[in-house]
Design a protein around this nucleic acid. Structure first.
Lengths: 208, 208
DNA sequence: GAACTCGCGTTACAAGCTGTATCACAAGAT
DNA sequence: ATCTTGTGATACAGCTTGTAACGCGAGTTC
């Protein structure tokens, strides 16, 4: 019974307090994640920093990995990646749609690069953490594949690339590790990186 | 005094035994690293698998990170990356030299991809592990920069890329994370990846 | 052949980590 | 006024890395 919105964000002072502690844990965890990395992230320290007991963290997020997942979810939510990608997808012409998508990804990565740095590469390093990232990366590749297919339909794939090859290249180059490495090395802001990325991708798809 | 080769690989049965245990530790560590990742790699398990005590591991490699460093060093040594890059650098023409370098990197990554997967991304995830990888990556970028500069001298950089931008792109695209992601996604062997990579890099440098 | 070195096993310990189980309490909900 | 529930406080089991101390026996050296 009760309210229709099952568990998350119920009404009332009680639920508001719950959300406050949840937020304080998340922000404290984010700070420590950036400083120490996931491996050396101590829930004891996070709890102390959030003004909370370690047990409370477990009651909210079940496990250390659950906390990580919540950080990732919060990040995507906060930055509004999904609506951003949808907006790009609704651009009528395939080429401007594609460039809008690349721009949107760069914007998303620029949202909180230091957390992404700790988060994304975990999937390669830690088998258990893989499932936290894998799902989101899968979604990203699905989106990219759609944009590439539209370009292919407009006969804008260069030889020798077919749809799957072009998707793989675009997905990798617009992924966070590549974007971060290029931007860091050129001391460039991630928000401007599309100006460098698009000329690179021009070898795969015709954008002129 | 004693022999001229200070500590490593002394002569005699004694030293041979030392090298044997060192090898058995390294191979056991490699196996566990692939299976569990660095984070969950237990030195107790490695020791048991190598038929050795955990204390012996510490006497050989000082710390868990030292063991990781030894694995990386052994990998580069075993695969002969340095001579391979030198060979590529000695090609007279800039363009064939460049393609030889890309091919050599792909060959190197194909040497032991699963270990590289666990190793390389650690630098982004674990601040302490960064110094293990950072030095080697720095060397790789130095090499790449030299090849790119030769291409620049031959006026083979495409607009709008200058030397540093081209180096950043080439370094990122030929880095292990990018190579691995593309190869895995296309179910392709890393040794053949240069056939896909070079057309991508054609947007940065003229290779025809 | 005797003395010596030294790599390794064994055991024990300190300190940290994750995750779980209990008990108590107080503030919001009913 | 009673009930619910989110949180604190504490204790515990089991794992981890890293260090310390003692002993032995095979390889080396004279």
């Amino acid at each position: 019974m009760a309210t229709s919105e099952s568990k998350e964000a119920g009404r009332g002072l009680r639920a508001a307090g719950v959300q406050r502690t949840r937020r304080s844990i998340l922000t404290a965890a984010r700070r420590h994640l950036i400083e120490t990395g996931y491996h050396r992230l101590s829930l004891e320290d996070v709890a102390a920093d959030a003004g909370v007991t370690r047990v409370t963290i477990y009651r909210h997020f079940d496990s250390k990995l659950g906390l990580l997942d919540a950080i990732a979810e919060d990040l995507a939510q906060q930055a509004g990646l999904v609506p951003g990608m949808h907006e790009a997808a609704q651009v009528a012409e395939p080429v401007p749609a594609f460039t809008a998508m690349v721009k949107e990804l760069c914007r998303f990565w620029s949202t909180d690069p230091e957390v992404f740095r700790r988060l994304i590469s975990l999937s390669a390093v830690d088998p258990e953490a893989q499932r936290v990232v894998a799902g989101r990366e899968h979604w990203r590749y699905q989106q990219i594949s759609a944009f590439v297919q539209r370009l292919a339909s407009a006969d804008r794939l260069r030889a020798p690339f077919d749809v799957s090859q072009a998707t793989a290249v675009v997905g990798t180059v617009t992924g966070f590790p590549a974007c971060d490495e290029i931007a860091t090395r050129l001391r460039m802001d991630l928000t401007e990186l599309d100006r460098t990325l698009l000329p690179v991708l021009a070898s795969v798809v015709r954008l002129d």
